[in-house]
């Protein structure tokens, strides 16, 4: 399995290398060129600083989106009346482009960190709410009755009933959320920040420097893959533990 993954990566890199050699253009550097650039930016360049800035925004905006989407979706899933009231707005918010949200946040709140984080959280929140609403709808009311009858404390309900039941939905929200949030963050950084991977991408785009552009993109993709391979895999195995 791992061998096949590695092989597929090697084949893709090889294809890229051959294409770059054939093109022989600065617009399509070879993987080795990008790797060297990545290493230089990482060791002597400002990549770590920008990577840190973007990662910080992910670490703040993503839990915010998760929490607000979870609360909204959970409440809508448990309360049909609230669901009927808010569903049209949720559908509307799902269709609002992230760029519009980012522009409005920057216009209303100024070109600051708060606006950037709020824009990312607001853009991602509706899709999180949809996943959590689905989770709340799937809630087993029989287990709820059992918990009431055996007088489970609020903490026990939360820890032993609601959270494990929502875990597969939380995992799904995290997986889809992480892959989207960083794309939104890059957009927000391009539009109105002076640091972060998105800012660097906009700088190198203006210079048509594809080598740096790819190096910065790869750096953040690697970070996300590490999160996937560690945190999300661990959560996956934990959630799947009881599924027979």
């Amino acid at each position: 399995m791992r061998y096949e993954r590695l092989l597929s990566l090697v084949v893709a890199l090889l294809a890229w290398h051959v294409a770059a050699r054939v093109a022989a253009s600065p617009l399509l550097p070879t993987p080795a060129d990008v790797a060297v650039c990545l290493w230089q930016e990482l060791t002597v360049g400002p990549m770590l600083h920008h990577l840190g800035a973007t990662l910080r925004r992910v670490l703040i905006s993503f839990p915010l989106a998760l929490l607000s989407g979870g609360l909204l979706g959970g409440s809508m899933g448990r309360n049909p009346k609230l669901d009927r009231w808010l569903d049209p707005w949720l559908q509307l918010l799902l269709g609002v482009p992230a760029m519009v949200v980012a522009i409005l946040c920057y216009v209303w709140l100024g070109l600051g960190e708060t606006a950037a984080i709020l824009a990312v959280s607001l853009s991602k929140m509706p899709s999180m709410a949809v996943i959590f609403r689905q989770g709340a709808r799937a809630h087993d009311r029989g287990l709820d009755e059992m918990a009431r009858l055996f007088r489970f404390s609020f903490c026990n309900r939360l820890r032993h009933l609601y959270l494990p039941e929502l875990a597969p939905f939380l995992l799904s929200a995290m997986r889809s959320g992480l892959s989207l949030v960083w794309k939104i963050i890059l957009l927000v950084e391009m539009l109105g920040r002076s640091d972060g991977i998105g800012f660097q991408l906009s700088v190198y785009f203006q210079m048509f420097d594809i080598r740096h552009l790819l190096a910065y993109s790869v750096s953040f993709m690697v970070v996300l893959m590490l999160i996937e391979a560690t945190l999300l895999r661990w959560m996956d195995s934990h959630v799947a533990r009881w599924q027979v």
Partner: peptide
């Protein structure tokens, strides 16, 4: 239907009925 928490062992299911 038994209404057991599928993610908890059976001893934990019984113990939770006792409060923790």
């Amino acid at each position: 239907t038994p209404r057991l928490l599928p993610w908890r062992s059976i001893a934990e299911n019984v113990a939770l009925g006792l409060g923790g």
